[in-house]
């Protein structure tokens, strides 16, 4: 598909030139696992690493989308541009999804400094979609100063966002359970900034106190997450949130932690890519030359065990044959 490849190559050029349609098309191609996906990402990669990535997470209905909408106002008032990736769940039954986060953000739909993209999780369970990370790269290369990722409404343990964002905001609401909830593992551990949204409701202060107590038990840490009350529908407290995010960014940059965080991310990406290539290679070879069915038959009849069979199978695979890792 040479012509198709050339057309796609143009998309990257258009993206770098600031073409919105190209940004949208590229995210679709990547999300759909197009055969050109890896070569497109290769071309995009050198242009990434400039955007600051903010993750926003919290339970369903905590006010994530409304808060993103308000944050956008702050960000734009400072003359910065922003890309938003808003993730909503894909149905495990039908594969369909209702992507409704941007309803709260439609005031920014015509702002050329804002690009909003909704994504379904498509089987991913960590609170993000399968291709969130790649979509961030597209918006980063597109030249957005800030990329905000809004996770699905999460429970206690969907914490993939912490591996993806530079700063993570966890949004809670008043009366979210007793103080034991605050010392549980998972989501309470990932926040760089805590927000108590709907802070005009009863119980907001108690919730804040409980989180502060939990944080104080952590002892001396170089960064102590602030706990900030907001009322997102009125915009109260959002300026403080933006200040806190800027402070956290300065902390990350001055302490050298930003480089650490990003180095860890690159290490993970590299590991995943190697694993992906090895996996693809193995199954290509198995499909082409190795008879899997007879092994399955033997193991089912207890003539062999799966452990030694797997070892034998791997020994037959030629990892040095041909050119792999290029293109699709």
């Amino acid at each position: 598909m040479l012509i198709r490849g050339v057309l796609m190559h143009h998309l990257v050029k258009d993206l770098l030139a600031g073409n919105r349609r190209a940004a949208a098309r590229l995210i679709t191609l990547i999300e759909n696992d197009d055969e050109e996906k890896r070569s497109l990402l290769k071309e995009i990669y050198p242009h990434t690493g400039k955007a600051f990535i903010i993750g926003i997470t919290g339970a369903p209905g905590a006010g994530k989308s409304s808060l993103v909408d308000r944050l956008l106002q702050q960000i734009r008032a400072e003359g910065l541009t922003a890309g938003i990736i808003a993730v909503d769940p894909t149905s495990p039954f039908s594969g369909g999804a209702i992507l409704g986060d941007r309803i709260r953000m439609q005031d920014h739909a015509l702002d050329a400094g804002v690009f909003i993209r909704s994504m379904g999780t498509r089987g991913s369970l960590g609170g993000l979609s399968r291709s969130t990370r790649e979509a961030i790269q597209v918006l980063d290369a597109f030249g957005k100063d800030i990329v905000i990722v809004e996770t699905v409404g999460v429970g206690q343990s969907e914490v993939d966002i912490v591996k993806t964002a530079d700063s993570t905001v966890v949004i809670l609401t008043p009366a979210g359970g007793d103080s034991v909830q605050t010392i549980k593992a998972g989501i309470m551990e990932i926040a760089d900034v805590f927000v108590i949204n709907k802070a005009d409701l009863p119980g907001a202060e108690r919730t804040a106190t409980e989180i502060n107590m939990m944080l104080d038990m952590n002892g001396e840490k170089p960064w102590r997450p602030p706990v900030l009350p907001t009322v997102s529908i009125k915009g109260d407290g959002v300026d403080k949130l933006w200040e806190a995010l800027q402070e956290h960014r300065t902390f990350l940059e001055d302490s050298g932690k930003l480089l650490d965080v990003r180095r860890q991310r690159v290490r993970r990406e590299l590991t995943e890519q190697v694993e992906y290539l090895v996996k693809t290679r193995i199954w290509d070879e198995v499909r082409d030359t190795i008879e899997l069915d007879s092994l399955v038959e033997k193991i089912s009849k207890r003539q062999q065990d799966p452990y030694s069979a797997a070892g034998e199978l791997l020994a037959k695979i030629n990892f040095y044959k041909g050119d792999h890792g290029e293109g699709g």
């Binding site: 949208a24 369909g96 439609q106 015509l110």
Partner: peptide, 26 residues
């Protein structure tokens, strides 16, 4: 959604420009 599609809903009171731009970004 139940037919397996990804549905982006805009909410009420959209201008034609908002609808077209949303279609493009999404």
């Amino acid at each position: 959604r139940d037919a397996g599609m990804e549905v982006i809903y805009t909410g009420l009171h959209q201008t034609p420009e908002q609808v077209a731009e949303t279609a493009l970004q999404e």
